[in-house]
Nucleic acid binder design. Structure first.
Lengths: 216, 216
DNA sequence: CGATGAATCGAACGTACAATTAAAACATAC
DNA sequence: GTATGTTTTAATTGTACGTTCGATTCATCG
């Protein structure tokens, strides 16, 4: 893992970010107080409101730090696949959607559970933040799906985009409990293998003929 | 909708349950206080700790009231499909998993968002409750998947079970925001149509040949 | 009617929270 | 080495929370 123990070195701002990320991942955004964060980070309580302006702004900073590179990588992959002669395949769209998240999860210990929290916390502020980060990504992937599955209606594509998102969100959100729930059977440490499983499942679902409009 | 406005009739206990369900669905479990609930229900604050013993026990009661019938119906459907000559098809397993939830969502306004909150709240008490309700269901569906997809390894089945759960959880959890996110395109009111789309997607994913072990 | 238990009520308990303040400590440049 | 701007500190503010309490109302039955 790349992260240092926050008790050593690193400036206050980074210590707060790292500790907040870890605690948000472990306990959720709503149930982690500034007192928890500052105590664990070994900094003063007021440091949060000094470096960031508010608790909400800290949450936004924690999320942006990890989400922005992931979404940039997603777009990058998508453009690469779209430039290829056969256009993007459903497998490639799924890969561009899933792999950057899984790779970030492998690189930074807390990213997967933290994103899981983000995807699943009812907090209204988080919902807005989520929209900010994911609305443009959703639109971009809808467009790519249209190229990968010509003839499928926009409505159907929209649904399947959300089904794909559901498969990934669930695995992300359950990344901490999944090994326990399955008695160690489901192991997320082999990122490539898990991604491959997901891509296979999702691509097959994307390719399935529509249940309501059989024709084209 | 079957529910009455809590301000009229119904005894205190039911008024609390109905109001709590509505507020939990709207604002989440953690962000809904007993004061919010009792104010909206028009009952005294102390009534919650009188009728239920604690806030946690109220949460458990709210969830059990809706989850128990859904899970009973799931098992019922599964047994019906398993009794059929061809054994259960992947479509039938998906149907038994998905349809009871969607039907409960159509019957009671707040069930879908409330279940979405339940599936996605980091609260440790909720996690335990979730385990209680879903662990046996998961085991039962894993068994059914084994019959529907003979030759697929237990490991692969476990993953695909979670992929299926992910598709449904995501739609459930996003039931309130999905119409807004998609500019009204994705509409959950036609329960049968949404269920059919999900079943098609999931069954295709379940049937896909394994990415890691091609043979069998 | 009068008594007994369930149900409701207003009020308070102690705890935890985000945010703010003014002073202290620190670093940097002159 | 003193002045200036940045960072850290301890203490406090006001608000909200779950839970508990004793008193009061209500329904039921002897």
């Amino acid at each position: 893992m790349e992260q240092l123990h926050p008790a050593f070195k690193a400036d206050t701002k980074t210590r707060i970010l790292d500790t907040a990320e870890r605690l948000f991942a472990a306990d959720g955004f709503d149930r982690t107080s500034l007192r928890d964060i500052t105590r664990d980070a070994g900094v003063n309580l007021a440091a949060v409101n000094y470096h960031f302006q508010s608790r909400d702004a800290l949450v936004a900073a924690v999320i942006s730090r990890r989400m922005s590179p992931v979404n940039a990588r997603r777009i990058e992959l998508l453009e690469k696949f779209e430039a290829q002669p056969g256009g993007p395949t459903p497998e490639q769209v799924a890969e561009a959607f899933i792999v950057p998240v899984m790779e970030a999860g492998a690189q930074f210990e807390n990213v997967r559970p933290m994103m899981g929290r983000m995807l699943s916390t009812p907090n209204e502020f988080l919902k807005r933040l989520f929209e900010t980060h994911l609305a443009p990504i959703g639109a971009r992937f809808l467009e790519a799906l249209g190229k990968a599955l010509p003839g499928v209606s926009q409505l159907e594509l929209m649904w399947r985009l959300h089904f794909m998102a559901g498969v990934m969100s669930h695995i992300i959100a359950f990344s901490r409990v999944l090994p326990m729930m399955t008695n160690g059977t489901c192991d997320l440490s082999d990122t490539k293998a898990v991604s491959a499983r997901m891509i296979t499942f999702v691509a097959a679902g994307l390719r399935a003929s529509s249940p309501l409009q059989e024709s084209v």
